[in-house]
Amino acid sequence: MAENKGVLIFCETKEGKLAAIATELLGCGRKLADDLGQELSAVLVGSGVSELAKEAIAYGADKVYVVDDPQLKDYQTDSYVSVMEKVVGQAAPRILLLGQTSLGRDLAPRLAFRFKTAASLGCLELAIDPQSKLLLQTKPVYGGNAQAVFTTDSFPQIATVRAKTMTPLEPDPSRKGEVVKVEAGLDPSAVRTKVLEKVAEKITGIKLEDAEVIVCGGRGIGGAEGFAQLEELAKLLKGAVGATRPPCDNEWVPAGAQIGLTGKIVAPELYIAIALSGSSQHMSGCSGSKTIVAINKDPEANIFREARFGLVGDWKKALPAFTEKLKELLAG
């Protein structure tokens, strides 16, 4: 195999556009490619995705590989691995990046094993080591209690990146790039799964993963009525309500609201943690938040080690006043 060169981004699409994670990865990939003095490529896989190549170029790609085939409409491990094996073989990248999504988490490890290389999933930071020129892959381990920096000396070096940890470039529609069509060449009998149905989660308001502001409650909220107050604050801030495990186990809130090790992973601009202690299992789901604000009656609670701003006191008394004052300030 020729020497591996450049950075390849697997671009997910959503509703006929590049997914937000794809633009974030292109922004990050551009920087890594420039640091290496090499090319940034993108790959689009799906049905009816050809049109998006120019969008990928506007967001920073020098070259876009397009595999457009009706058989690729739905993500399926076997078909996508087969297509990506072909593209990676052709592009021979030094680095392959995917999003830490339900797709990326499935595709990245299988590709890594197929190419006898390694992957790091859920990275927060990526950089090129100035000496070895290898990709430094930083990710949370032990449920967020620690972070690890990994390297791989087999190629491609594969990583998935958490949403909202990288910044997209301003799209430049005048950027020029090359588009390379790749035939899917799928053998339908080699695809051992079939997608029968796709069911969208019922949500009222903003999705937790997309919310810029999250108001999260813990065991100390005490019941569903308490969460109604959190809902009010979330609504005011155009955010979403999350919870630690106990409120979900007690059915004060739906199971889908759980943030943490065994729940959702979020990284909002602002995370308001109310009456929750900040166990590692919970923090691993929200430690990527930009600013954490905590209200808790226990001054020793771990959440105050994680928070930027804190209030020690009974949330039942502090929260209504907090919400009221914010209403006033935001109106003024």
């Binding site: 602002l270 209200i295 701003f309 209030l311 009974d314 008394k317 209504p320 009221e324």
Partner: peptide, 14 residues
């Protein structure tokens, strides 16, 4: 009071 602290926290964040 906790109420005052709540209002102060809002002012701080702003």
């Amino acid at each position: 009071s906790p109420e005052e602290a709540g209002a102060n926290l809002a002012a701080k964040l702003r």
